[in-house]
Design a protein around this nucleic acid. Structure first.
Length: 579
DNA sequence: GTGCCTTGTCATCTG
DNA sequence: CGCAGATGACAAGGC
C-alpha cells in the first residue's frame, strides 16, 4: 500500500529534502487541484500583480492594502488564493464546499498542530510589506519565469484556496484557513479533542477513509514517533487547544518560522533603503546608457584628447596677447589672453579644445552640435606637426562659401571652447599642440622640446600644460572609475537582493511543501489507525493506543502511555539539539 | 539669487 | 629621489 511506503520512509531519519522529494512524487492532490484555482483567478492575478509591481516607491503604504486584496499564485504549484481572507470570503468559500463545511470541525482539529507550530507574534502589516517586497523583487528578475508568482506566506491564505477550490483534497489541508483568517474558529486547534471522534471526515477525500472514533489522540501518537520532531513540534501539539480562540489570527500560520520572518524583515529593510524594482530597472537602463561613461577607449579622455590634439591651433595669435600672459597662469592668467584677436584666428583651423564635451554625457548645449561637422574637419588638420613659422592661418578646409559672419561665429565658438592652457599656449606661441605636450611619452616629449628654441617662460608653460593636462585626464579617469565603482556596487546590491529574494521564495516553497507533507502523513496515520482491529475485530481506541514508526521502517502499535513517554523524550532531545 | 552638477586645477599621496 | 598616476578638495562655470 502507498501509505506503508510513506510511513516507512518517514520513520527513518528523514531530512527535509527527502520529504520534499517524496512529496513531489507522492502528493496526488497537487497541481491539478491547484490549477483550477489558478485558471480561475489567473487574469485577476495578473492584473493585480501588475498593479503591485508598479507600486514603486509608494508600496510600503498603499501596497499593503492593495496586496491584501490580491490573489497570490504559487509559482510552483499554480495554486492561487486570496492574499487576505475577509470573513465574507470565508463564508462563501465554505458554502461552496459543503462536505468541507460539514466536517470542518474534524478537519480543523486534525490539522491544527501542524499549522500552529513556531508561531510568533509579529506585525501583520509588516508581513504584507515583506511579501510585497518579495513580489517586487520577483518582478526584477529578468531571466526567471515571468509568471512565477510568489506563494503567499500566509498559511491561511494558501489553505483557503485548497478550501474553496479543491473540495476533494485531504481535509486537513484546508483547516488553517479558518485559523488564519477567523480568529474565532477555535475548532481549528482542537485536532485531538475528544468531540471529533464521532464526527465523520470528509467523504470526498481520496486519502482519508477513517473509521469513526479513530481520529483522536493522533497528536500525542505522532509525538511519540521519530516523526514527531519533523512534523509535530511537541510544544505546539500540547498547546494547540490553548492557542485557539479570539486572539489575532496569525496569517502566516505555521508556514513561516521566526528565522524566515527575520529574513523577510531584513530584506524589507534592504529594500526600504533605496532599492525597489522601479529603481532597479532604471538602474539597468543607466547601465546600458552609461557606456559613454565607461572606460571605453572610443570615449576615453585620451582618445578624445587625441582628436583634440590633432586639431591645430593657429600660432598666429597676436603678440600683444602674449605679453599679457601670466606665467604661472593656473589661477591668474591675464584676461587679455582670453581676448585674443579673433579676427586673426577665425581662419585658423585649429582648436577644438573642449571637443570632449560633445562626446560626454553632459555637453552643455545641444545646439552647438551643429558645429561638429566643422570640428571634424578641424580635427584632422595636423598643422601642429609643421615647423615653427610654417603655420598657415588660413582655413583651407573651410567651405569657401561660408560667409564671414558664420565663420566669425565658428571662430568665436572655437575660441570659447579653447581651454585656458590652449589660450596660453597660443599666447606664448608654443609651436606644437597641447595634445602633443600632454600625451607624448616623456622621451618624445623631451625630444620635441629639444627641436625648438624655447624661452624659459615657454618651457615653464609647456611643463605646466603637460602637468595640468595629465592631471585633467587623470581626474576624468578617476571620476569615471568612481562612478563605475558606484554602479557596480549598486548592481551587486541588486544581484544580491535578487538572490536573496529567490532564496526566500524557495524557502517559502519548501515550507509549504513540508506543511503539505505533514498533512499527508497525518492523513495516512489516521487511515492506518482507523483500519486496525484487535482480536475481536474492534477498532483500537486512540486514547489507549498509538502508532509508532520503528527504526527499521515498520509501524507498530504501542500503548499510548509508552508513546507519550517517548514523545516527551523526543521533545527533550529536540530542545537540546536546538540549544 | 541659489543650489546642483560638471569640469578643471592644485596639493598630496602612492607605487 | 623623481616621476607619473590617483585622488580629495576646492573653485569656476553652466543650468
Amino acid at each position: 500500500m502507498g501509505w506503508e511506503s510513506h510511513l516507512t520512509a518517514a520513520s527513518a531519519d528523514i531530512d527535509l529534502i527527502d520529504i520534499l522529494w517524496r512529496q513531489d512524487i507522492d502528493l496526488g492532490a497537487g497541481r491539478e487541484i491547484f490549477d483550477y484555482s489558478h485558471r480561475q483567478k489567473e487574469s485577476e492575478v495578473d492584473k493585480e500583480l501588475k498593479d503591485g509591481g508598479e507600486c514603486g516607491d509608494s508600496w510600503p503604504d498603499e501596497g499593503t492594502e492593495a496586496l491584501a486584496r490580491n490573489l497570490l499564485v504559487d509559482g510552483e504549484t499554480g495554486e492561487s488564493f486570496p492574499a487576505q481572507f475577509p470573513a465574507s470570503d470565508v463564508s462563501s468559500i465554505t458554502e461552496a464546499v459543503p462536505t468541507e463545511s460539514e466536517s470542518s470541525v474534524i478537519q480543523n482539529s486534525l490539522l491544527s498542530p501542524l499549522l500552529t507550530e513556531t508561531e510568533s507574534p509579529f506585525d501583520l502589516e509588516q508581513q504584507w510589506q515583506d511579501l510585497m517586497s518579495i513580489m517586487e523583487m520577483q518582478a526584477m528578475e529578468v531571466n526567471t519565469a515571468t509568471n512565477e508568482i510568489l506563494y503567499s506566506t500566509t498559511s491561511g491564505d494558501s489553505l483557503s484556496t485548497n478550501y474553496s477550490l479543491a473540495p476533494s483534497t485531504p481535509i486537513n489541508q484546508n483547516v488553517s484557513l479558518h485559523q488564519a483568517s477567523l480568529g474565532s474558529c477555535a475548532q481549528d486547534f482542537s485536532l485531538f479533542s475528544p468531540e471529533i471522534e464521532s464526527l465523520p471526515v470528509a467523504s470526498g477525500s481520496t486519502l482519508l477513509q477513517l473509521a469513526p472514533n479513530n481520529s483522536t489522540s493522533l497528536n500525542s501518537t505522532f509525538g511519540s514517533t521519530n516523526l514527531t520532531g519533523i512534523f509535530f513540534p511537541p510544544q505546539l501539539n500540547s498547546t494547540a487547544n490553548e492557542t485557539a480562540g479570539p486572539e489575532l489570527p496569525d496569517p502566516l500560520g505555521g508556514l513561516l518560522d521566526e528565522a524566515m520572518l527575520d529574513e523577510i524583515s531584513l530584506m524589507d529593510l534592504a529594500i526600504e533603503e533605496g532599492f525597489n524594482p522601479v529603481q532597479a530597472s532604471q538602474l539597468e537602463e543607466e547601465f546600458d546608457s552609461d557606456s559613454g561613461l565607461s572606460l571605453d577607449s572610443s570615449h576615453s579622455p585620451a582618445s578624445l584628447s587625441s582628436s583634440e590634439g590633432s586639431s591645430s591651433a593657429s600660432s598666429s595669435a597676436s603678440s600683444s596677447a602674449s605679453s599679457s600672459f601670466s606665467e604661472e597662469g593656473a589661477v591668474g592668467y591675464s584676461s587679455d589672453s582670453e581676448n585674443l584677436d579673433l579676427e586673426e584666428t577665425e581662419g585658423a583651423v585649429g582648436y577644438q579644445p573642449e571637443y570632449t564635451k560633445f562626446c560626454r554625457m553632459s555637453y552643455q548645449d545641444p545646439s552647438q552640435l551643429s558645429y561638429l561637422p566643422f570640428l571634424e574637419h578641424v580635427g584632422h588638420n595636423h598643422t601642429y606637426n609643421m615647423a615653427p613659422g610654417a603655420l598657415d592661418t588660413s582655413d583651407p578646409q573651410l567651405p569657401g562659401s561660408l560667409k564671414k559672419g558664420s565663420r566669425e561665429k565658428q571662430a568665436d565658438f572655437l575660441d570659447k571652447q579653447m581651454s585656458r592652457d590652449e589660450h596660453r599656449a597660443r599666447a606664448m606661441k608654443i609651436p606644437f599642440t597641447n595634445d602633443k605636450i600632454i600625451n607624448l611619452p616623456v622621451e618624445e616629449f623631451n625630444e620635441l622640446l629639444s627641436k625648438y628654441q624655447l624661452s624659459e617662460a615657454q618651457l615653464s608653460l609647456i611643463r605646466d600644460i603637460r602637468r595640468r593636462g595629465k592631471n585633467k585626464m587623470a581626474a576624468q579617469n578617476c571620476r569615471k572609475r568612481k562612478l563605475d565603482t558606484i554602479l557596480n556596487l549598486e548592481r551587486d546590491v541588486e544581484d544580491l537582493q535578487r538572490d536573496k529574494s529567490k532564496l526566500l521564495r524557495e524557502k517559502v516553497e519548501f515550507l509549504k511543501s513540508l506543511r503539505q507533507m505533514k498533512q499527508k502523513v497525518q492523513s495516512l496515520y489516521q487511515e492506518v489507525f482507523g483500519r486496525l482491529r484487535d482480536e475481536n475485530g474492534q477498532p483500537y481506541s486512540p486514547t489507549q493506543y498509538a502508532l509508532q514508526y520503528a527504526g527499521d521502517g515498520s509501524v507498530i502499535l504501542i500503548p499510548r502511555t509508552l508513546a507519550d513517554q517517548q514523545a516527551r523524550r523526543q521533545e527533550r532531545k529536540q530542545k537540546d539539539r536546538r540549544k
